[in-house]
Each structure stands twice: as structure tokens, then as C-alpha cells.
Amino acid sequence: MQVGLQHYLVVSALLFATGLLGVIIRRNLLVMYLSLELMLNAANLALVSFSRFKNSLDGQVLVFFIITVAAAEVAVGLALIVALYRKRQSAHVEDLTSMKL
């Protein structure tokens, strides 16, 4: 069977589900952030495969922008985590309940 768009999209969906699972079950902020990157990469894979099978480069330019935004997002998010750690000495979501009623 020829590998087509569907194959790539299934891989992308599975990777996205893996990332979502990580965000839900892991309790460490850094590992949750790594899983978020996994989800972002799954979206990138879907876009690149659409671009390939539609014979147009627009999808790849979009992925280029997504990678740039992801880099900026990682920088800001990690700065937030470091600031949080400095205040609480913990990167664990269960310790961050100061907004709980």
C-alpha cells in the first residue's frame, strides 16, 4: 500500500494524543511543557504533509512561523517557570494552589 496523506495524519494524531496524555497525567511543570512541545510538533507534521500532498508550499511557510513562535513561547514559559520556582521552590503543579478558594 502506497504511503499517503492518511498515514502521515494518523501518525500526527497519535503523536498529538501522546502529548495530550503527558499534559494530563504528568505533574511536573517541565515535563508538561515538554509534552506541549510534542503536541506542537504533531501539528507541524500534519501541516507539512498537507503541503506535500496538496503540492503547495504555503503549509511549510506556516510551519516555519510556528517554529519561530514556539521558540519565543518556550523562552517566555521557561522564564515564568524559573520565576515561579524561585518563589515557591517547586515546579510541581500540586504545590501551586495559591488561587484555590
Binding site: 501522546t18 496524555l21 497525567i25
Partner: peptide, 14 residues
Amino acid sequence: FAAFTLLFGLLVVA
């Protein structure tokens, strides 16, 4: 490579 991607992705999470 799809198998590698999914396997390593799973190992990131669990």
C-alpha cells in the same frame, strides 16, 4: 521513522 517518532514520543511522556 514513524515508529521511532511514536516510540520516543511515548517515552517522553511515560
